[in-house]
Amino acid sequence: MIASLFDPSFAESISRMTVPILLAALGGAICQRAGVFNIALEGFIIIGAFMAVLGSYFFGSASVGLFCAMAGGVFMALLFAEFHLRRAGDPIIVSIALNLIGFGLSTYLLRAILGVSGVFQHDGIKKISNIHIPLIESLPYVGKLLSGQSLLFYFSIIAVLFCHAFYAKHRLGLWMRAAGENASGLTSLGVSPKRMQFFALTVCGVLCGLAGAQLSISNVGLFVENMSAGRGWIAVVAVLVSGGRPLPLLGLVFLFGGVDSMSLRVQGFGWPQQFTEILPYLASLLALIIVSYKRLRKDWATKGIKIT
């Protein structure tokens, strides 16, 4: 039973769900910690995915694809920063707008530049190479899982760990936490919180761009309209549930990924596809409910139950 967890479907769900969601959620968490409520992750990812395919196709190189994906994500982040940080627009409304723009722009450019609608698949799209680690590869069960994954899998894990250390020990990490927690306190110490938030947004753009690249040019090498399919929202839930802390975020995203791999498997039992596709969303909703309820109970315990 346990062994079956490590079958190929798990590896597939890692690349299809876990890594994109982890990268995007890390970006969202960095924004959250710096005090930017960014729920435009969905829009960031889809632009990243499209730009990755575009770059990889035109230049015949996966690295250019990765670079374009990051540039696309940063472009969205700059829009967010311009309208939220500089023009003081409400972050939720800005997010809604950017999600629409992300969906619209990727679909529009798919037809306008690549001349197809729906799906773009071409041999010219170079994919990110997978990395094989000799020693780990030969381990039972986990070997297949920890080796032979896409470059971005390893990058995302390292990024999470680095982020953890960064918040605890690095000067900018402290400043970014302060920007999110008591921004006027940071201002009074002579550091501009907006600058920290801009930095956070830019990093988020890079990470979401990479999340998109993982979707489109890591295993499959194609772009589909609306291919982010709600992953950005699952990432938002992961950010909310983990409170933006990197390590819990890591665990949570792997949990969601695990549920997705189960859903891939139960399709084999003849369950209708709609019921299995829904599982990751239900899992994230459930996690959100559990954590929200815990917070509510804690509130009741410390502040008393409010009758309303």
Partner: peptide, 29 residues
């Protein structure tokens, strides 16, 4: 011209609306 141009323009319009000073949309903030 792909019809998604409407969605993009819609998004851009809302970006400007969100940042205009008259917007008082989320009062619960």
């Amino acid at each position: 011209v792909p019809k998604e141009i409407a969605v993009i323009l819609q998004g851009i319009i809302i970006l400007f609306v969100a940042s205009s000073k008259t917007a008082d949309i989320r009062q619960n903030g």
